[in-house]
Design a protein around this nucleic acid. Sequence first.
DNA 1: CTGAAAGCGCTTACAG
DNA 2: CTGAAAGCGCTTACAG
Lengths: 348, 348
Amino acid sequence: MDEAADRTLPARNGRAARVTIHDVARASEVSIATASKALSGQGRMAVATRERVKEVAKALSFRPNAIARALLKQRSFTIGLLTDDTYGRFTLPVMAGISEALVDRGVSVFLCSVERDSAVGQSHVDAMLEKQVDGIIASGKRLDRRLSVDLSVVDVPVVYAYCEGPEGSIGFVSDDRAGACLAVERLMALGRRRIAHVTGPADFAVVPQRARGFAEALARAGLRPFTEHPMVGDWSEAWGFAAAERLLADPAGRPDAVFCGNDQIARGLIDALTLRGVAVPGDIAVVGFDNWEIFAAATRPPLTTVDMNLKDLGRHAGLTLLDLVEGRPVPPGVRALPCRLVVRRSCG
Amino acid sequence: MDEAADRTLPARNGRAARVTIHDVARASEVSIATASKALSGQGRMAVATRERVKEVAKALSFRPNAIARALLKQRSFTIGLLTDDTYGRFTLPVMAGISEALVDRGVSVFLCSVERDSAVGQSHVDAMLEKQVDGIIASGKRLDRRLSVDLSVVDVPVVYAYCEGPEGSIGFVSDDRAGACLAVERLMALGRRRIAHVTGPADFAVVPQRARGFAEALARAGLRPFTEHPMVGDWSEAWGFAAAERLLADPAGRPDAVFCGNDQIARGLIDALTLRGVAVPGDIAVVGFDNWEIFAAATRPPLTTVDMNLKDLGRHAGLTLLDLVEGRPVPPGVRALPCRLVVRRSCG
DNA sequence: CTGAAAGCGCTTACAG
DNA sequence: CTGAAAGCGCTTACAG
C-alpha cells in the first residue's frame, strides 16, 4: 500500500497519468472486479476488504472515470441546455434553477447558445448528441418563440423552459395572467380604483396575457380599466416616460394607479411622474413586472413588481427532464407556474 | 444497404437504439476498422469503399459516440466553466466569448456556478474532473476576488478570466487603466478641462486602476483633476445622484465633465443634473464605464462609456486554454486586454 | 486495400 | 467471498 501510494505515476503528456481502478486494485491486492464492487457499495463482500479498498482509493486520490462508466451504462449524467438568450435576463435565472436541481443528482449541464443562425445551432445540438447527453432543455427569452433548431427528431427527451415547443411537448412557463391579477388585486386592496395598464408590444404573447389578468381582476371587483384599452408601446423606459406624460395630459383626469407591463416601463413612468411633481405612490401607485432587481430596487421609490419565479421554473424543468430520462412517465403539456408579488414602496 | 437502411432498430428503454459504427460496417459490408477509417478520412483506402461507407453512415443517420472516442483518446473535447456570478453582468459576455471560441473547435462547455459555499463548489469541480474535462476556466465578477474553490491541485490546465488566480497562473483581465485614459482623452479632446471622477468603493481593484488612468491622462495634458481625490461611493444610481448634487452645491464652481466609475453612477448623475436643469453634455459632459446597454442606451441622453470587451476576453481565455490542452506552451502571467470607448450623446 | 486484435476504464452477471 | 470474462463504441498499429 505504501509502495503504491508513493510510486511515481507515469507521465502522460507532461501531466501525471490519472489513477484508475486498476491502480486501486493492484494496491489493494484484489481484482478490479472486487475493487469496483467495493467502491460502488454494491453487493455483499468482506467488510475488511471493502474498507481496505476504500482507504487505498482515498490514499491514491482515485477519481472514477465517468466517461468509462457512461459508455458502459449508456447514460452520461449530462444534459444539454440550449438558449437563444446568452445575454439576457430571463434565461439566467432559469439556467441557475436547472443547474441547481440537476447538479445535486450528479448531472452536469452543457451550455450552448443557439443564435439566429439555425445551421450553427443545429451543429451545436449535434455536438451535444454525439456527447451522449441524456436529455435537452430548450430555453429562451420569449414564451412565444421557438428556438431556431428543430428538436422534434432528437432521440433523447426534451423539455421546454420559458420557450415555445411543438404540439404535444412538455414545457414550463410562468402564469403571467395570474401574476397580473396579483398586481391589480394589491392596488385595489390599497383603495385604488382608477387603474391604468401601460405595457409592451401586442405581438408578445405575454402582453395579452398580462392584460387579461389585469382586466379580469378589475372585473371581479366591478371596476373598469382606466383606459378602454391597455396603452401599448415598446418595452423601454422611454415609452414609460412618454406614457406618463400622456396620462397626465388627459383632461378627463388622472389614474390613481398604473400597472406596467415590465419594470423598465415602470421605471420610465415613475421618473416622468416625479419630474412633473406627481407623488409616487401618494398620487399614483405603480406596479411593475419582472422583478429585475437592478431596475426595481433602483427606482425612486423602489418598485413593487411581479416576480416570475424563473429559478423555480428552471428547477421544475430540470427535475422533469430527469423524470423522463429515468423513464418515469410525464404527461405532455405546458404547465404555467405561479408568479409572486414583491412588495416595495411604489405601491404604498 | 437498403435492407440496413430500413431495418427496424432494436428498442432500448423505449427509445430507438443508437446506431453504432457496427451497424454502419455491417450495412456497408466492411469491417468496423475499415468503417472507422473511412469515416475519419484518415489513411489510404479505395475511394469507392470510403464513399460507400460514408453514404451508408448518412443513410443510417450515424452519429459517432464521442464518449467512446474520448475514452480511447483520453481527451473529452469538453471543458468546465466555473463562475461565481450566475446572475451577473460580467460573466455573461465572458461565457459567450468562451463558448463561441470553443464550440467551433468541437469543444463543449460544462457550466457550473460556484457560490459562497466552497464545499459545494468543490464537489462540482470534482464532478467535472470525473467527467474528464480537458481543462477549466475560472471566471468571476470581480478582478480581485478568487473563486471559493481551490484549483491549484487540479491536474488539468486552468485559465482565469476576469477573476483572480494564484501566483504564476494564466489569466485575462481588462485594462481598466487604459480604458479610463480613453474616456478622459475623449473629454479633453472636446475641450473639457474641469473633469471630475465619481466612482465606486475603493476596495474594488478596478477603482484605483480607473482612477490612475484618469489621473495619468489629465497629467499628460498638464491638467489637474477637478477634485483632489476621486469621489468615492457605492456602485449605485443613488450615489451618482448624490454626487451630482454635491458637485453642483460646491461654491468653488462646477466641473465641465464627469468621468464615472460605472454606468449606474453615470445614470444617477445624469438624472440629477437633468432635474436641476443642467444640460448634458452642454454644461457637463459625462462618460461612464461598462457599456451595460440597458443603462447606457436608456440614459437621457444616451451614455458614452468604456466597454471592457468582455466577450473578446472570454474568447482569448478559451483559445488559450485550448493551447494548454493541446500542449502548446503558454507563458504564465496576467494579460490585460484593451477596452474600447463607445461614443453616444452624453459627451457631445 | 482490408480486417483481426488490443485496448481506453469501468461494471456486471456468472463461475469458482 | 473473490475473480475471470465479456462488453460499452470506438481507434490504431499491425498483419495479411
